[in-house]
Design a protein around this nucleic acid. Structure first.
Length: 218
DNA sequence: CTCCCGATAT
DNA sequence: ATATCAGGAG
């Protein structure tokens, strides 16, 4: 549907819209980033930052997370949701870091996804934001935006969406593009009430045009 | 595929 | 009341 030129124009306009898109999870090192991303599943970045502000003061190393009872860590992250599985994962992840990696977060994607609670998306966020390795992490925003715009198909899995985006974008722009698509999805092309009437890429968006027609009939 | 789950927006 | 939020594991 979309040709090379159109895709380039779409990404260019989104880049102009959010020139300073970046990781909004507050962190001071790769370990904190890994914890923050693991906590961010089905939860807003704002809420994660609210919890990690105190969490990262109490827990600074993998040893710190392992040294408390599971129930205590659960209470410390309870307000984030999915807190039982996340607390268990964080302790197991910390143990694995201590046993296999001398307490350091590994730099390789292949090793990161072996950590409990770390899947493909989280690993991509860590390698790109903490270690400078180009990656496109497909989260709920990237998936929704890509499918609405027609950069991917509605039936595509998140892995298929990631592959299609990597093919359409130069490798050295993967991480920036990833952040811009997140900002675009979070602040403009939102899940509920997307701002189609004020959208700079409406002319390329099948879903947007469809939504505009529905607005006219009302 | 379902389950995990509290907080917030709509 | 319901949908959604930087998903991952079983």
């Amino acid at each position: 549907m979309l040709n090379r030129t159109q895709i380039g124009e779409i990404l260019h306009r989104i880049a102009e819209m959010f020139p300073d898109a970046h990781c909004e999870l507050i962190h001071a090192n790769p370990f904190e980033l890994t914890i923050a991303v693991a906590l961010s599943a089905q939860c807003t970045d704002q809420k994660v930052n609210q919890v990690t502000r105190s969490l990262f003061q109490k827990y600074r190393t993998p040893e710190d997370y392992v040294s408390v009872p599971l129930e205590e860590l659960e209470q410390d992250i309870r307000s984030i949701g999915l807190f039982r599985s996340k607390a268990k994962n964080i302790q197991a992840l910390s143990r694995m870091l201590l046993e296999q990696y001398d307490g350091q977060v590994p730099r390789e994607h292949e090793q990161l996804v072996q950590l409990p609670g770390v899947g493909r998306k989280t690993a991509n966020v860590v390698v790109s934001n903490a270690f400078g390795e180009p990656a496109i992490a497909v989260d709920t925003h990237v998936e929704r935006v890509s499918k609405r715009l027609g950069l991917a198909n509605w039936k595509d899995s998140v892995l298929e969406v990631e592959k299609k985006l990597m093919k359409k974008v130069p490798r050295e722009e993967w991480t920036q593009t990833h952040h811009r698509l997140i900002f675009f999805g979070r602040y403009h092309c939102k899940a509920q009430n997307p701002a189609c009437p004020a959208c700079p890429v409406l002319e390329f968006c099948r879903e947007g045009k469809k939504r505009m027609k529905k607005l006219e009939t009302v």
